[in-house]
Design a protein around this nucleic acid. Sequence first.
DNA 1: TCCTTCTATGTCAGAAATGACATAGTGGGC
DNA 2: GCCCACTATGTCATTTCTGACATAGAAGGA
Lengths: 191, 191
Amino acid sequence: MTATTSTLGFAILAVLARADSTGYEIAGRMRHPIGRFWTAGHSQIHADLQRLRAAGLVEYVTAAGPGPQEKKVYSVTPEGLGALRDWVTEPPRPQPERDELVLKTYAAWLADPARLIEMFRTALRHHEERLAEYESTWAAVEEAPPAFGTSGFGNMAALRCGLTYERHRAEWCRWMIDQLLRAQSDGEHPA
Amino acid sequence: MTATTSTLGFAILAVLARADSTGYEIAGRMRHPIGRFWTAGHSQIHADLQRLRAAGLVEYVTAAGPGPQEKKVYSVTPEGLGALRDWVTEPPRPQPERDELVLKTYAAWLADPARLIEMFRTALRHHEERLAEYESTWAAVEEAPPAFGTSGFGNMAALRCGLTYERHRAEWCRWMIDQLLRAQSDGEHPA
DNA sequence: TCCTTCTATGTCAGAAATGACATAGTGGGC
DNA sequence: GCCCACTATGTCATTTCTGACATAGAAGGA
Protein backbone atom coordinates (compact mmCIF):
# COMPACT_ATOMS: atom_id res chain seq x y z
CA MET A 1 0.00 0.00 0.00
CA THR A 2 2.48 2.62 1.19
CA ALA A 3 5.04 3.41 -1.48
CA THR A 4 8.43 2.01 -0.54
CA THR A 5 10.71 5.00 -0.90
CA SER A 6 14.13 5.50 0.58
CA THR A 7 14.78 8.27 3.08
CA LEU A 8 16.47 10.25 0.33
CA GLY A 9 13.24 10.07 -1.65
CA PHE A 10 11.43 11.82 1.20
CA ALA A 11 14.18 14.40 1.48
CA ILE A 12 13.59 15.18 -2.20
CA LEU A 13 9.83 15.36 -1.66
CA ALA A 14 10.41 17.71 1.26
CA VAL A 15 12.36 20.05 -1.02
CA LEU A 16 9.78 19.92 -3.79
CA ALA A 17 6.93 20.53 -1.33
CA ARG A 18 8.46 23.96 -0.76
CA ALA A 19 9.05 24.84 -4.42
CA ASP A 20 9.09 23.11 -7.79
CA SER A 21 12.72 22.57 -8.77
CA THR A 22 15.13 20.95 -11.21
CA GLY A 23 17.37 18.12 -10.05
CA TYR A 24 20.23 20.57 -10.02
CA GLU A 25 18.39 22.91 -7.66
CA ILE A 26 17.50 20.02 -5.38
CA ALA A 27 21.18 19.11 -5.20
CA GLY A 28 21.91 22.70 -4.19
CA ARG A 29 19.39 22.63 -1.34
CA MET A 30 20.79 19.26 -0.36
CA ARG A 31 24.08 20.98 0.31
CA HIS A 32 22.48 23.92 2.03
CA PRO A 33 20.52 24.00 4.26
CA ILE A 34 19.60 20.29 4.29
CA GLY A 35 23.22 19.23 4.29
CA ARG A 36 23.28 19.74 8.05
CA PHE A 37 21.09 16.67 8.55
CA TRP A 38 21.02 14.81 5.22
CA THR A 39 23.35 14.60 2.24
CA ALA A 40 23.26 13.33 -1.32
CA GLY A 41 25.22 13.93 -4.48
CA HIS A 42 23.48 14.99 -7.68
CA SER A 43 23.99 11.58 -9.29
CA GLN A 44 22.00 9.94 -6.54
CA ILE A 45 19.30 12.60 -6.76
CA HIS A 46 18.78 12.13 -10.50
CA ALA A 47 18.47 8.38 -10.00
CA ASP A 48 16.01 8.81 -7.16
CA LEU A 49 13.91 11.31 -9.09
CA GLN A 50 13.43 8.70 -11.79
CA ARG A 51 12.33 6.17 -9.18
CA LEU A 52 9.96 8.68 -7.58
CA ARG A 53 8.49 9.42 -10.97
CA ALA A 54 8.00 5.71 -11.72
CA ALA A 55 6.17 5.47 -8.38
CA GLY A 56 3.98 8.43 -9.34
CA LEU A 57 5.12 10.61 -6.44
CA VAL A 58 6.62 13.35 -8.61
CA GLU A 59 6.12 14.63 -12.17
CA TYR A 60 7.91 17.14 -14.35
CA VAL A 61 7.51 19.62 -17.18
CA THR A 62 10.35 20.19 -19.60
CA ALA A 63 11.98 23.41 -20.71
CA ALA A 64 15.03 24.31 -22.77
CA GLY A 65 18.19 23.47 -20.86
CA PRO A 66 21.75 24.74 -21.09
CA GLY A 67 23.27 21.35 -21.88
CA PRO A 68 22.44 18.65 -24.42
CA GLN A 69 19.44 17.49 -22.39
CA GLU A 70 16.25 19.34 -21.67
CA LYS A 71 15.74 20.87 -18.27
CA LYS A 72 13.11 19.15 -16.12
CA VAL A 73 11.17 21.07 -13.49
CA TYR A 74 9.83 18.59 -10.94
CA SER A 75 6.82 18.95 -8.69
CA VAL A 76 5.13 16.74 -6.08
CA THR A 77 1.97 14.91 -7.10
CA PRO A 78 -0.98 14.63 -4.68
CA GLU A 79 0.10 11.02 -4.01
CA GLY A 80 3.62 12.24 -3.30
CA LEU A 81 2.36 14.83 -0.84
CA GLY A 82 0.25 12.17 0.89
CA ALA A 83 3.23 9.82 1.17
CA LEU A 84 5.37 12.64 2.56
CA ARG A 85 2.73 13.58 5.14
CA ASP A 86 2.44 9.96 6.29
CA TRP A 87 6.18 9.53 6.52
CA VAL A 88 6.73 12.69 8.58
CA THR A 89 4.86 11.42 11.62
CA GLU A 90 6.17 7.85 11.50
CA PRO A 91 8.64 7.54 14.39
CA PRO A 92 12.14 6.86 13.03
CA ARG A 93 13.98 3.98 14.64
CA PRO A 94 16.47 5.31 17.20
CA GLN A 95 19.39 6.81 15.31
CA PRO A 96 22.42 4.74 14.39
CA GLU A 97 24.60 7.82 14.69
CA ARG A 98 27.93 7.77 12.92
CA ASP A 99 30.40 10.18 14.40
CA GLU A 100 34.05 9.92 13.47
CA LEU A 101 35.27 12.43 16.05
CA VAL A 102 33.74 10.41 18.89
CA LEU A 103 35.24 7.23 17.46
CA LYS A 104 38.64 8.91 17.51
CA THR A 105 37.93 10.03 21.05
CA TYR A 106 37.25 6.44 22.05
CA ALA A 107 40.80 5.60 20.95
CA ALA A 108 42.29 8.89 22.16
CA TRP A 109 44.00 7.28 25.17
CA LEU A 110 46.60 5.88 22.73
CA ALA A 111 47.59 9.20 21.17
CA ASP A 112 49.63 12.30 21.91
CA PRO A 113 47.73 14.83 24.09
CA ALA A 114 49.26 17.85 22.33
CA ARG A 115 48.02 16.68 18.94
CA LEU A 116 44.62 15.84 20.39
CA ILE A 117 44.33 19.33 21.86
CA GLU A 118 45.07 20.73 18.41
CA MET A 119 42.39 18.52 16.84
CA PHE A 120 39.76 19.48 19.39
CA ARG A 121 40.60 23.16 19.07
CA THR A 122 40.01 22.87 15.33
CA ALA A 123 36.71 21.12 15.94
CA LEU A 124 35.73 23.72 18.54
CA ARG A 125 36.43 26.54 16.10
CA HIS A 126 34.18 24.92 13.50
CA HIS A 127 31.37 24.48 15.99
CA GLU A 128 31.66 28.02 17.28
CA GLU A 129 31.51 29.38 13.75
CA ARG A 130 28.39 27.44 12.98
CA LEU A 131 26.86 28.39 16.30
CA ALA A 132 27.41 32.09 15.60
CA GLU A 133 25.81 31.66 12.18
CA TYR A 134 22.81 29.83 13.64
CA GLU A 135 22.40 32.36 16.43
CA SER A 136 22.21 35.29 14.07
CA THR A 137 19.66 33.47 11.91
CA TRP A 138 17.77 32.54 15.04
CA ALA A 139 17.59 36.15 16.20
CA ALA A 140 15.93 37.07 12.91
CA VAL A 141 13.46 34.16 13.14
CA GLU A 142 12.54 34.93 16.74
CA GLU A 143 11.41 38.45 15.89
CA ALA A 144 8.72 37.11 13.58
CA PRO A 145 8.04 33.46 14.47
CA PRO A 146 6.60 31.66 11.45
CA ALA A 147 3.18 30.04 11.88
CA PHE A 148 2.75 26.29 11.90
CA GLY A 149 1.51 25.27 8.46
CA THR A 150 4.09 27.42 6.68
CA SER A 151 7.45 26.08 5.57
CA GLY A 152 9.12 28.65 7.82
CA PHE A 153 8.05 26.53 10.78
CA GLY A 154 10.11 23.63 9.42
CA ASN A 155 13.10 25.93 8.96
CA MET A 156 12.83 27.25 12.49
CA ALA A 157 12.39 23.81 14.06
CA ALA A 158 15.41 22.33 12.25
CA LEU A 159 17.46 25.43 13.03
CA ARG A 160 16.60 25.11 16.73
CA CYS A 161 18.02 21.58 16.69
CA GLY A 162 21.20 22.75 14.99
CA LEU A 163 21.55 25.52 17.54
CA THR A 164 21.39 23.30 20.63
CA TYR A 165 23.52 20.68 18.86
CA GLU A 166 26.35 23.11 18.21
CA ARG A 167 26.16 24.33 21.79
CA HIS A 168 26.44 20.78 23.13
CA ARG A 169 29.28 20.04 20.77
CA ALA A 170 31.26 23.18 21.62
CA GLU A 171 30.75 22.51 25.32
CA TRP A 172 32.06 18.97 24.93
CA CYS A 173 35.10 20.10 22.92
CA ARG A 174 35.96 22.61 25.66
CA TRP A 175 35.63 19.88 28.26
CA MET A 176 37.91 17.60 26.21
CA ILE A 177 40.57 20.30 25.82
CA ASP A 178 40.44 20.94 29.55
CA GLN A 179 40.88 17.24 30.33
CA LEU A 180 43.77 16.95 27.90
CA LEU A 181 45.52 20.02 29.32
CA ARG A 182 45.31 18.46 32.76
CA ALA A 183 46.68 15.16 31.43
CA GLN A 184 49.54 17.07 29.83
CA SER A 185 50.55 19.00 32.96
CA ASP A 186 50.25 15.83 35.06
CA GLY A 187 52.66 14.19 32.64
CA GLU A 188 55.14 17.08 32.89
CA HIS A 189 55.52 17.20 36.66
CA PRO A 190 53.92 14.15 38.27
CA ALA A 191 53.54 14.33 42.05
CA MET B 1 52.87 5.52 2.86
CA THR B 2 49.94 5.57 5.29
CA ALA B 3 47.78 2.45 4.93
CA THR B 4 44.47 3.31 3.28
CA THR B 5 41.93 1.83 5.65
CA SER B 6 38.26 2.66 5.94
CA THR B 7 36.87 4.23 9.09
CA LEU B 8 35.41 0.87 10.04
CA GLY B 9 38.93 -0.57 9.90
CA PHE B 10 40.02 1.92 12.55
CA ALA B 11 36.97 1.16 14.64
CA ILE B 12 38.05 -2.49 14.61
CA LEU B 13 41.62 -1.55 15.49
CA ALA B 14 40.29 0.56 18.37
CA VAL B 15 38.46 -2.49 19.73
CA LEU B 16 41.47 -4.77 19.34
CA ALA B 17 43.77 -2.22 20.98
CA ARG B 18 41.77 -2.78 24.16
CA ALA B 19 41.68 -6.57 24.02
CA ASP B 20 42.42 -9.36 21.54
CA SER B 21 39.10 -10.61 20.20
CA THR B 22 37.34 -12.83 17.70
CA GLY B 23 35.30 -11.26 14.91
CA TYR B 24 32.20 -12.25 16.79
CA GLU B 25 33.31 -10.39 19.89
CA ILE B 26 34.16 -7.32 17.83
CA ALA B 27 30.64 -7.38 16.43
CA GLY B 28 29.31 -7.47 19.99
CA ARG B 29 31.32 -4.40 21.00
CA MET B 30 30.19 -2.74 17.80
CA ARG B 31 26.66 -2.98 19.09
CA HIS B 32 27.61 -1.89 22.57
CA PRO B 33 29.15 0.47 23.50
CA ILE B 34 30.49 1.60 20.10
CA GLY B 35 27.05 1.40 18.50
CA ARG B 36 26.32 4.87 19.86
CA PHE B 37 28.77 6.43 17.41
CA TRP B 38 29.61 3.74 14.85
CA THR B 39 27.84 0.64 13.56
CA ALA B 40 28.67 -2.43 11.50
CA GLY B 41 27.21 -5.89 11.03
CA HIS B 42 29.32 -8.98 11.51
CA SER B 43 29.48 -9.68 7.77
CA GLN B 44 31.15 -6.35 7.19
CA ILE B 45 33.52 -6.91 10.10
CA HIS B 46 34.72 -10.28 8.82
CA ALA B 47 35.38 -8.79 5.40
CA ASP B 48 37.28 -5.87 6.90
CA LEU B 49 39.35 -8.10 9.16
CA GLN B 50 40.59 -9.93 6.08
CA ARG B 51 41.54 -6.62 4.47
CA LEU B 52 43.28 -5.44 7.63
CA ARG B 53 45.19 -8.69 7.75
CA ALA B 54 46.25 -8.36 4.12
CA ALA B 55 47.52 -4.86 5.00
CA GLY B 56 49.46 -6.30 7.95
CA LEU B 57 47.59 -4.25 10.55
CA VAL B 58 46.16 -7.23 12.43
CA GLU B 59 47.08 -10.90 12.85
CA TYR B 60 45.39 -13.90 14.43
CA VAL B 61 45.97 -17.18 16.18
CA THR B 62 43.51 -20.02 15.70
CA ALA B 63 41.74 -22.15 18.26
CA ALA B 64 38.99 -24.76 18.13
CA GLY B 65 35.68 -23.13 17.26
CA PRO B 66 32.09 -24.14 17.83
CA GLY B 67 31.16 -24.20 14.13
CA PRO B 68 32.73 -25.80 11.09
CA GLN B 69 35.47 -23.16 10.96
CA GLU B 70 38.22 -22.54 13.43
CA LYS B 71 37.95 -19.63 15.81
CA LYS B 72 40.37 -16.78 15.10
CA VAL B 73 41.58 -14.53 17.87
CA TYR B 74 42.77 -11.28 16.34
CA SER B 75 45.30 -8.82 17.71
CA VAL B 76 46.78 -5.54 16.49
CA THR B 77 50.27 -5.63 15.00
CA PRO B 78 52.79 -2.86 15.79
CA GLU B 79 52.08 -1.40 12.34
CA GLY B 80 48.35 -1.49 13.11
CA LEU B 81 48.88 0.34 16.38
CA GLY B 82 50.96 2.95 14.61
CA ALA B 83 48.31 3.47 11.95
CA LEU B 84 45.64 3.78 14.63
CA ARG B 85 47.68 6.33 16.58
CA ASP B 86 48.23 8.41 13.45
CA TRP B 87 44.57 8.28 12.49
CA VAL B 88 43.32 9.35 15.92
CA THR B 89 44.81 12.83 15.74
CA GLU B 90 43.98 13.49 12.09
CA PRO B 91 41.14 16.03 12.09
CA PRO B 92 38.01 14.48 10.54
CA ARG B 93 36.29 16.54 7.90
CA PRO B 94 33.27 18.31 9.42
CA GLN B 95 30.54 15.74 9.93
CA PRO B 96 28.02 15.01 7.23
CA GLU B 97 25.43 14.21 9.87
CA ARG B 98 22.47 12.11 8.86
CA ASP B 99 19.50 12.59 11.11
CA GLU B 100 16.12 11.31 10.04
CA LEU B 101 14.21 12.98 12.87
CA VAL B 102 15.50 16.41 11.87
CA LEU B 103 14.66 15.71 8.24
CA LYS B 104 11.10 14.89 9.29
CA THR B 105 11.09 18.08 11.35
CA TYR B 106 12.05 20.06 8.27
CA ALA B 107 8.86 18.79 6.61
CA ALA B 108 6.79 18.91 9.83
CA TRP B 109 4.83 22.00 8.74
CA LEU B 110 2.86 19.71 6.38
CA ALA B 111 1.74 17.21 9.01
CA ASP B 112 -0.76 16.83 11.82
CA PRO B 113 0.43 18.49 15.08
CA ALA B 114 -1.17 15.82 17.29
CA ARG B 115 0.74 13.04 15.55
CA LEU B 116 3.93 15.07 15.66
CA ILE B 117 3.55 15.58 19.40
CA GLU B 118 3.20 11.84 19.76
CA MET B 119 6.35 11.25 17.72
CA PHE B 120 8.41 13.76 19.69
CA ARG B 121 7.16 12.37 22.99
CA THR B 122 8.38 8.94 21.90
CA ALA B 123 11.75 10.40 20.91
CA LEU B 124 11.94 12.32 24.19
CA ARG B 125 11.29 9.16 26.17
CA HIS B 126 14.14 7.37 24.36
CA HIS B 127 16.54 10.22 25.01
CA GLU B 128 15.60 10.49 28.66
CA GLU B 129 16.14 6.77 29.13
CA ARG B 130 19.59 6.94 27.61
CA LEU B 131 20.41 10.06 29.56
CA ALA B 132 19.52 8.33 32.84
CA GLU B 133 21.70 5.38 31.85
CA TYR B 134 24.63 7.63 30.95
CA GLU B 135 24.25 9.69 34.10
CA SER B 136 24.45 6.68 36.36
CA THR B 137 27.54 5.41 34.51
CA TRP B 138 28.99 8.90 34.70
CA ALA B 139 28.52 9.07 38.47
CA ALA B 140 30.58 5.89 38.80
CA VAL B 141 33.32 7.20 36.49
CA GLU B 142 33.54 10.55 38.24
CA GLU B 143 34.35 8.95 41.59
CA ALA B 144 37.52 7.42 40.18
CA PRO B 145 38.51 9.33 37.02
CA PRO B 146 40.64 7.10 34.80
CA ALA B 147 44.12 8.37 33.91
CA PHE B 148 45.01 9.43 30.39
CA GLY B 149 46.90 6.56 28.79
CA THR B 150 44.39 3.98 29.99
CA SER B 151 41.44 2.85 27.91
CA GLY B 152 39.12 4.11 30.64
CA PHE B 153 39.96 7.62 29.50
CA GLY B 154 38.51 6.84 26.06
CA ASN B 155 35.39 5.42 27.67
CA MET B 156 34.91 8.49 29.82
CA ALA B 157 35.50 10.95 26.98
CA ALA B 158 33.03 9.22 24.65
CA LEU B 159 30.52 8.90 27.47
CA ARG B 160 30.80 12.62 28.20
CA CYS B 161 29.84 13.34 24.59
CA GLY B 162 26.87 11.00 24.77
CA LEU B 163 25.77 12.66 27.97
CA THR B 164 25.69 16.21 26.64
CA TYR B 165 24.24 14.96 23.35
CA GLU B 166 21.26 13.34 25.05
CA ARG B 167 20.70 16.47 27.11
CA HIS B 168 20.64 18.65 24.00
CA ARG B 169 18.36 16.24 22.27
CA ALA B 170 15.89 15.97 25.14
CA GLU B 171 15.87 19.74 25.48
CA TRP B 172 15.09 20.15 21.79
CA CYS B 173 12.30 17.54 21.89
CA ARG B 174 10.70 19.40 24.82
CA TRP B 175 10.94 22.66 22.90
CA MET B 176 9.32 21.02 19.84
CA ILE B 177 6.46 19.59 21.90
CA ASP B 178 5.90 23.00 23.44
CA GLN B 179 5.81 24.68 20.02
CA LEU B 180 3.41 22.06 18.68
CA LEU B 181 1.08 22.40 21.66
CA ARG B 182 0.92 26.14 21.05
CA ALA B 183 0.22 25.56 17.35
CA GLN B 184 -2.56 23.18 18.31
CA SER B 185 -4.29 25.55 20.73
CA ASP B 186 -3.92 28.44 18.26
CA GLY B 187 -5.66 26.25 15.70
CA GLU B 188 -8.50 25.47 18.09
CA HIS B 189 -9.47 29.00 19.01
CA PRO B 190 -7.73 31.49 16.74
CA ALA B 191 -7.94 35.10 17.87
C1' DT C 1 40.45 36.16 -25.91
C1' DC C 2 40.56 32.84 -22.60
C1' DC C 3 39.32 30.83 -18.46
C1' DT C 4 36.36 29.84 -14.82
C1' DT C 5 31.90 29.37 -12.70
C1' DC C 6 27.17 28.43 -13.00
C1' DT C 7 23.42 26.12 -15.08
C1' DA C 8 21.69 21.37 -16.26
C1' DT C 9 21.42 16.62 -17.56
C1' DG C 10 22.99 12.01 -17.08
C1' DT C 11 26.09 7.35 -16.85
C1' DC C 12 29.25 4.22 -14.75
C1' DA C 13 32.57 1.83 -11.86
C1' DG C 14 33.51 0.77 -7.44
C1' DA C 15 33.08 1.03 -2.44
C1' DA C 16 30.33 0.58 1.63
C1' DA C 17 26.53 -1.39 4.06
C1' DT C 18 22.48 -4.40 4.97
C1' DG C 19 20.15 -8.65 5.63
C1' DA C 20 19.51 -13.28 4.52
C1' DC C 21 21.46 -17.78 4.17
C1' DA C 22 24.49 -21.63 5.74
C1' DT C 23 26.88 -24.52 9.26
C1' DA C 24 27.52 -26.45 13.89
C1' DG C 25 28.61 -27.38 18.94
C1' DT C 26 27.35 -26.20 23.87
C1' DG C 27 24.34 -25.07 27.56
C1' DG C 28 20.02 -23.90 29.70
C1' DG C 29 15.00 -23.68 30.32
C1' DC C 30 10.41 -25.88 29.87
C1' DG D 1 13.32 -34.48 24.92
C1' DC D 2 12.94 -30.29 22.41
C1' DC D 3 13.76 -25.81 21.26
C1' DC D 4 16.18 -21.59 21.76
C1' DA D 5 20.02 -18.58 22.56
C1' DC D 6 24.88 -18.06 22.39
C1' DT D 7 29.31 -18.81 20.28
C1' DA D 8 31.72 -18.54 15.80
C1' DT D 9 32.79 -18.54 10.99
C1' DG D 10 31.75 -17.11 6.47
C1' DT D 11 29.21 -16.12 1.61
C1' DC D 12 26.02 -13.76 -1.39
C1' DA D 13 22.62 -10.69 -3.46
C1' DT D 14 21.04 -6.31 -3.26
C1' DT D 15 20.92 -1.63 -2.18
C1' DT D 16 23.03 2.69 -1.22
C1' DC D 17 26.44 6.02 -1.88
C1' DT D 18 30.50 8.35 -3.74
C1' DG D 19 33.36 10.32 -7.21
C1' DA D 20 34.71 10.55 -11.77
C1' DC D 21 33.49 11.15 -16.51
C1' DA D 22 30.77 13.29 -20.31
C1' DT D 23 28.28 17.17 -22.64
C1' DA D 24 27.29 22.06 -23.46
C1' DG D 25 25.55 26.95 -23.42
C1' DA D 26 25.68 31.51 -21.03
C1' DA D 27 27.80 35.00 -18.22
C1' DG D 28 31.52 37.48 -16.29
C1' DG D 29 36.26 38.64 -15.11
C1' DA D 30 41.39 39.07 -16.27
